[in-house]
């Protein structure tokens, strides 16, 4: 339905996206994952016809949209990362403004606005000035504006950044419902792995402008099928323990946090007794050792050597 073909985008000497290939089929929720600066926003700008690739193509229904983006724009809703609203207007005035841009007016516009306000849970705040909204309410209205003209495809660029868990859940549930009830196609970018795991059928992972993995959740987790992730918890760490872990030849990757160390090891290796021994030698009291099935976060750590939110 919508695809990027060998698309590269360069800004002066910096290549923000390098020969990216990705596609979205009708009715799918596709996740685009990557840390800050991975090239996600550039990729979706190209995909939404806001930015022309330096080389490569963007296609909608097998036709290039580089010369004529109108057919795509007609069915596309965009939720930018920023709050793209007039803060001095009320919720209803914002919706009226963006509705008029889509040539909607009169009762049709009013009816659509009522539906959208209900959907995003802002009916009671319709006449409130956006400036006085909480972060979560602004985010919801930001999404509502993109849904006003009944788009078939919606591109959401990190729509849950900086909001409370309650609003975040509301947004995720809304996106899921839009997909299930209206068969809306969704491209969802985030650096919250759990959001993507919850929502998406297929996932693309980007880092430093490159696509480093793609597939269904299961396919991506298969990347780590030969490995286990072990989570070690303690109240504090000491240098001797960390040094002995780092020097262990069987450990593939290591991530040290304040009270947790995550290591990736081959599945056949039994690290339990070895870790207990290391802790004893270092004079460290461990609270727990958990052996986990790989998560997308683990895959990301495996592929890039760093955490998603680094």
């Amino acid at each position: 339905m919508l695809e990027l073909v060998d698309s590269t985008k360069s800004f002066k000497k910096v290549k923000a996206v390098k020969k990216l290939n990705m596609f979205i089929e009708k009715g799918e929720i596709v996740g685009l994952l990557g840390p800050n600066g991975a090239g996600k926003s550039t990729a979706i700008s190209m995909l939404s016809s806001l930015m022309e690739p330096t080389s490569g193509d963007v296609r909608y229904c097998n036709k290039s949209i580089l010369k004529n983006p109108a057919p795509l724009r007609k069915i596309l809703g965009m939720v930018p990362q920023e709050i793209a609203l007039y803060e001095d207007l009320t919720a209803i005035e914002n919706l009226q403004f963006f509705g008029r841009l889509y040539r909607m007016k009169g009762k049709e516009l009013q009816r659509k606005i009522d539906v959208i306000l209900e959907l995003i849970g802002l009916t009671d705040h319709r006449k409130d000035i956006v400036k006085k909204f909480s972060g979560g309410m602004k985010r919801r209205l930001n999404i509502g504006v993109a849904l006003l003209h009944d788009p078939e495809v919606i591109i959401m660029d990190e729509p849950t950044v900086g909001i409370d868990p309650q609003s975040r859940n509301y947004i995720l549930e809304t996106v899921k419902r839009l997909n299930e009830e209206r068969q809306m196609t969704v491209l969802y970018t985030s650096h919250y792995m759990e959001e993507v795991e919850f929502l998406c059928d297929r996932i693309y992972i980007m880092d430093k402008g490159n696509l480093i993995a793609s597939g269904t959740k299961q396919e991506i987790k298969q990347i780590l099928s030969a490995e286990n992730t072990i989570s070690i918890k303690a109240d504090r760490w000491n240098d001797a323990f960390i040094a002995s872990i780092e020097s262990s030849p069987t450990i593939h990757r290591i991530k040290v946090e304040e009270k947790e160390i995550t290591i990736v090891v081959p599945k056949e290796v039994n690290m339990f007794s070895e870790l207990a021994k290391m802790a004893e030698q270092a004079g460290l009291e461990l609270r727990s050792i958990d052996i986990n099935s790989p998560t997308l976060e683990d895959v990301f750590l495996h592929l890039t050597g760093r955490a998603l939110r680094d």
Binding site: L50, M78, P80, E82, A84, Y86, F98, L101, Y102, R103
Partner: peptide, 13 residues
């Protein structure tokens, strides 16, 4: 910068 302009570009305006 805030993306309002992008939204307008994507609209029929």
């Amino acid at each position: 910068k805030e993306g309002i302009w992008d939204r307008m570009i994507l609209s029929p305006v």
